[in-house]
Every structure is written in structure tokens, then in C-alpha cells.
């Protein structure tokens, strides 16, 4: 094992299932102690990417290394170092939360005490409840606890907060940050820009099996924010007004983000801002927000990935 190398690396990895699914020619390195969020629309290849790293999928081409090990050929050496959270399921429905966690603890030589961990994920009072009777959020938190119980060096979390209520989500974020601060390498997939922005050191955006962006959330937002304006009006633009905005010579392109929000592209954003303000000042609708420059991660995402196919 090479302590100085990346914790996780994919190089030239291709895995296809036919029908254009899977991932193609993926290069991605995650440094030790780094938290990388893999962001992408449904079916983009997020789960395939983590499952390649977890050793669940064998790449058609390319190499996968986790802590310097091949996760398939050196599976026995690799597995004690990993914490895995599947996207859903993976737990005996008839077993209680505490029984399940004790079982997984017994797989490791020096596990975290199951009782403490159960409390950490907010399930202390649900320990006797069987998995099938737990709410969606509680199931996810139990699944997270199973990933943590072996004190892993690398955590793979596939949509850890999907379907969670806000309270569960905040707790989960807190726990993930805590592990990250203890030096654990984390790779998580998510739909949520907010999650990626709040947690990740770097964000990898995947679309149709290809890596289309990889950078810190701040850099990504800034880079893609060049020449972008975010516009929000009190009521939505009527088709006529939208046409008029599009017709402004300073504005190159307008896309609708929904809920009276628009994303404008312009070579000279300041001039475009002035033109839009002037246009809306006469005849409305009233302007609520006009932001020039730094875009949000959401804009980057929409910009880089194609719409639902």
C-alpha cells in the first residue's frame, strides 16, 4: 500500500452495459482525506462509478485502485478498509437496528461500539425496531452506521441523504464532516447541489458516463459564472417579454430555470445587466434579483449536463 498515493483512483475506466449506459474513459483521483461528491442526473453513471471503486463491478478497460489495492483481485485486503452504503436496501428486514449493527461490528477486529454509534446516528431509541418498520430516513442512517462501524479509511456513500427529512439530512452531513475531519476519505454521490456545495472539497460532474467537470465547488461556480447572469422576476416573464429579453443585443442566450428564474448568457455581462434592467423598468415584471458573474453550482450543473433524455 502506498501511503502517499491517492486514496482512490480510476484511470481510463470503461464499463458498459449496452444501451449507452455505464461509464466511458473515466479518470478520477481522490486524495487521502479528501471529500469528493459525484454529481449527475439520473442514469448518468454515478452508481456505476462508486460500484467500480467498491469492487462490485469489473471494469471492461482501465484500472481501479483503492488505497493502492485492486478492489476485486485484492478484495480480502481491501474490504476491511472500506465503509459502504448502498443506494438502498442491503439490510435484513426482519432484524432490528441494534442486531444489524452488532452483526456488522462482529465482522471487524476493532469496531466502533455499536451502542455509541447507534446513538450517534440518532437511532438510540429505535434500536429494537426491525428494519422493515423504520422510516426511510432512519433506514438510511442505519445504513450509514453500518458503513462506519469498522472505522473505515475510505467511505463510499451512494446518495446518503436521498429521501431524508431535513433533520436527518443535517445530522448525516454533520457525521460525514466529522469523519472527514478525522482524515477519512469520502466519496459520495448526490443529486443535491446543496449537499455537494456544503460538503465537498471537489465536485465531479458526470453526464452520460463521462466526467464533464472536476473542481472545487467555488472554482466550478466561478469558472462557469463567467458571462452568466441569473435573473429572477416577481412574476414570470410572459412569452412576449421573454422574446424581448432574448432579442436584446447584449444578451446571447436565455434559459429558463423555472419559478420565474432565468439564466442569461452574455459576452459583456455588465452591458446585458443594464439592458435587462432598462427593459424591465418599463412594463415589468418587477425585478427581484439580478446577479452578475459567479454562478451557482446548480447553473454549472445545468450548463454541463444535458436535459433528461
Amino acid at each position: 500500500m502506498s501511503p502517499d498515493g491517492p486514496a482512490v483512483s480510476l484511470s481510463g475506466v470503461t464499463k458498459s452495459y449496452g444501451e449507452g449506459r455505464g461509464v466511458a474513459d473515466l479518470d478520477l483521483e481522490v486524495a487521502a482525506g479528501e471529500l469528493v461528491a459525484v454529481l449527475g442526473p439520473n442514469g448518468a453513471g454515478k452508481t456505476t462509478t462508486v460500484e467500480l471503486m467498491e469492487g462490485y463491478r469489473r471494469p471492461d478497460r482501465g484500472t481501479v485502485r483503492v488505497l493502492g489495492l485492486d478492489p476485486i483481485r485484492e478484495r480480502r485486503a481491501c474490504l476491511p478498509l472500506l465503509g459502504i452504503m448502498l443506494q438502498e436496501g442491503g439490510i435484513y428486514p426482519a432484524l432490528s437496528a441494534a442486531e444489524t449493527l452488532r452483526l456488522f461490528a462482529a465482522y471487524f477486529r476493532d469496531p466502533e461500539p455499536p451502542g455509541e454509534l447507534l446513538e450517534r446516528v440518532g437511532l438510540a431509541d429505535r434500536g429494537r425496531a426491525r428494519y422493515r418498520h423504520l422510516s426511510g430516513g432512519a433506514r438510511q442512517r442505519l445504513s450509514l452506521a453500518l458503513a462506519l462501524v469498522g472505522r473505515p479509511r475510505v467511505l463510499f456513500l451512494d446518495e446518503p441523504t436521498a429521501g431524508m427529512d431535513p433533520r436527518s439530512r443535517l445530522l448525516t452531513w454533520e457525521i460525514i464532516r466529522e469523519r472527514r475531519s478525522q482524515g477519512v476519505t469520502v466519496l459520495l454521490t448526490t443529486h443535491s447541489m446543496e449537499e455537494a456545495e456544503r460538503l465537498a472539497d471537489r465536485v465531479a460532474i458526470i453526464d452520460r458516463g463521462r466526467l464533464v467537470a472536476l473542481d472545487s465547488p467555488t472554482h466550478l461556480s466561478q469558472a462557469a459564472g463567467q458571462g452568466l447572469l441569473e435573473l429572477e422576476t416577481v412574476t414570470g416573464l410572459t412569452p412576449t417579454r421573454l422574446q424581448e429579453v432574448r432579442a436584446l443585443s447584449a444578451v446571447d442566450e436565455v434559459s429558463e430555470l423555472g419559478e420565474a428564474r432565468y439564466l442569461l448568457r452574455a459576452t459583456e455581462p455588465a452591458r446585458a445587466a443594464a439592458a435587462v434592467t432598462a427593459l424591465l423598468a418599463e412594463g415589468g415584471p418587477q425585478l427581484r434579483l439580478l446577479r452578475v458573474g459567479a454562478g451557482s453550482l446548480e447553473e454549472v450543473f445545468l450548463d454541463l449536463t444535458e436535459g433528461p433524455s
Binding site: 462482529a106 471487524f108 479509511r153 478525522q182
Partner: peptide, 26 residues
């Protein structure tokens, strides 16, 4: 920053006993 000893798998009899117990419960 990371604690020194690498996590290791339990000796198999421990995992076996825990798994057997669960299989019987199920």
C-alpha cells in the same frame, strides 16, 4: 492525522458466531 493501525477483519470464529446467531434468528 489518521490513526496508525489499519482496520482489520475480525477473526473468522467471531464473525461466524455472529452470523450463525443471525441466521438462526431469521
Amino acid at each position: 492525522m489518521t490513526p496508525a493501525p489499519l482496520p482489520r477483519a475480525a477473526p473468522w470464529p467471531r464473525a461466524f458466531r455472529a452470523q450463525l446467531r443471525v441466521e438462526l434468528i431469521l
